[in-house]
Design a protein around this nucleic acid. Structure first.
Lengths: 340, 340
DNA sequence: CTACGGTTGGAATCCGTATTCCAGGCGGGG
DNA sequence: CCCCGCCTGGAATACGGATTCCAACCGTAG
């Protein structure tokens, strides 16, 4: 079961066996290679990655931190991360924060303990005041990690000293507003998500700004959770504040697809028909929602590709440099915002 | 950075520091504990899990193998696994097979190399003949793993010698058929998925059997991939073979929700309205699809709970025993099969 | 006051592999 | 034919921490 056993069976020393089976700069002579290979095969030897990690002081592990792996946004990004990592023969360590910075700290701590070669953080954090201390603890932790030679890549809000991939939320939302207005004039409500979440704030701002540029003011900007249920609740508020209920016809922009999904559910529950009575737009282009009916207008983000790139950047040779890559969104107009 | 540094700073020996900081049966005296704690804090010491793993010969790692983490079925199960694992202070190692047994072998190999304490396999494998060799390699690998003290839990088809959680596919599909017939008489088409995939076969069999019991024969049983695209393609076939196209009215049972989603997309593309012109039912009750419109009739599986249980079982103290737990599905009738 | 059981901290060892360093063997050139 | 340098395999050591074993020390009972 150990390398020594293999070595003994092959009649060589342990270092020689090591040189044969694991990538070494030195290659023993062909007959020895053959003998060791045979012995390893016979014993069904599988190297101990922990011991290798200890000896080499690098683990081949990559830590992936997401808020919620059941959320299609994160699972899609995770698929990209996983694909690229496995192509590079690395294993992915998965952690979930449930949107709590404290959990995120726990996760990063664990990843440092396991000496992951790189950490990928997905999703921006809430910038609440009482969470500030946690924020700083997290930043400090990541600093230490970087100083110890750890690589960090972030998908979402830029973090000082890291490689970051940021969706161009402002521009994407603005482009969406522009495209909608180019199609037809209309009124808007924005389901703006958490007021302290950078992603949500940026998308709201980009959208509203573009409206303003055209001289339009949104009927309302309704905050809420960044989830399906948050979208549902926010949409309920919108319905409640509605006076001439049927055939309202305004366009509701939810700052992400999952919220848009919740909003559509709420509207339907309130007997409003999507597209005819109320239009809905989202952001992200979640794969599963592409077959939704009516089709949800949204801003498509290359989620899987972003995951891939994060690994690339984290593992790139240039060390210590920080960079920000913008992922641009592509507006996709579907039936959910088709004018009637 | 190492335990020795902490020990030196605290003025004690390395073993003593170890006893203080990591769970040991022996607790040093309070003043020493205090000193070591302080030293560790000052240095920002974070233990090296690799070294601990080597010394303790257990890693705190759990390997999770899924076919595709972007697929909501697997990501939901993964969320359960992750939640339970993190509650027990274990880290989750994630691997993706893309439905290839070869990839699955690679994943298990890696997990063995990393000496994961347990491996959770999700999703049944194809039982093709030419994949038989790979199957056996996989089984052999898992056997070795088990003999080395590894715990295995499987979600899907039972694997000899493991703890297994199997959805009661036959019974669930039968119950679905029964519920549909109780609601109204109708004709059926089954999109049966891959003919070699146990899950797909069982669901098809359970459904068809129940129909037979009532003297009904499905109009057609159309095989295909177990994915959204597979469902789409199969539905296209159904459409092509349709004679009186509009207002067909039969019920199409796709053996999983993702296929059902694809099928609905195909029907819509063929200008058939869901529920009115063609009814659709699925299996799994994928969360994201709960807000689909019209609501998709399906058999709800406690996916997240299944993930949780898998960890529980894998980490349970009873070693070596094999068991099969059935997860029962709950029929949920929604509008997609509402008679007109 | 002494002998003895129970603690408590430290020295030594071990986990499994990579790597440095060393000694021996080989070939080639002078 | 001899010497020198290179290649090759093995001995020793390092990686960071858990654990076994040992010695010293404590208090208590005889």
């Amino acid at each position: 079961m150990t390398l020594r056993d293999v070595a003994v069976l092959a009649g060589v020393s342990q270092p020689t066996a090591s040189r044969v089976l694991n990538g070494s700069t030195r290659r023993p002579s062909p007959d020895i290679v053959e003998a060791v290979r045979r012995a390893a095969d016979e014993l069904g030897y599988i190297s101990n990655a922990q011991a290798q990690a200890l000896a080499r002081s690098q683990t081949g592990l990559i830590g992936l931190v997401v808020h919620d792996i059941a959320d299609p946004y994160f699972s899609t990004v995770a698929a990209g991360v996983q694909a690229e990592a496995s192509q590079r023969d690395r294993q992915v360590l998965l952690a979930t924060t449930l949107r709590s910075t404290e959990q995120e700290i726990r996760a990063v701590n664990a990843f440092i303990a396991y000496r992951t070669d790189a950490i990928v953080l997905v999703g921006s954090r809430l910038h609440t005041d009482d969470g500030r201390r946690d924020q700083e603890r997290l930043t400090g932790l990541l600093d230490r990690y970087r100083n110890l030679g750890g690589r960090i890549a972030v998908i979402g809000q830029p973090l000082p000293g890291t490689h970051t991939i940021t969706p161009d939320n402002r521009a994407g939302a603005a482009a969406l507003a522009k495209a909608l207005l180019a199609e037809a004039p209309r009124e808007f409500v924005v389901l703006s998500g958490p007021p302290k979440l950078a992603t949500a704030v940026d998308r709201t701002a980009g959208f509203v700004r573009e409206l303003r540029r055209t001289g339009i003011k949104p009927l309302a900007v309704v905050p809420g959770e960044f989830t399906r249920d948050g979208g549902y609740a926010a949409a309920q508020q919108v319905i409640a504040s509605l006076n001439p209920k049927p055939r309202w016809g305004a366009c509701v922009f939810a700052v992400n697809d999952v919220m848009a999904l919740g909003a559509m559910a709420a509207f339907r529950a309130g007997h409003l028909r999507i597209a005819q009575d109320v239009q809905v737009a989202g952001f992200d282009d979640i794969p599963t929602l592409r077959d939704h009916h009516p089709g949800l207008t949204t801003v498509a983000l290359p989620l899987q590709e972003m995951g891939r790139r994060a690994i690339e950047m984290a593992l790139a040779s240039d060390t210590g440099v920080q960079s920000v890559t913008r992922a641009t969104g592509r507006v996709i107009l579907r039936e959910s915002t088709k004018p009637h």
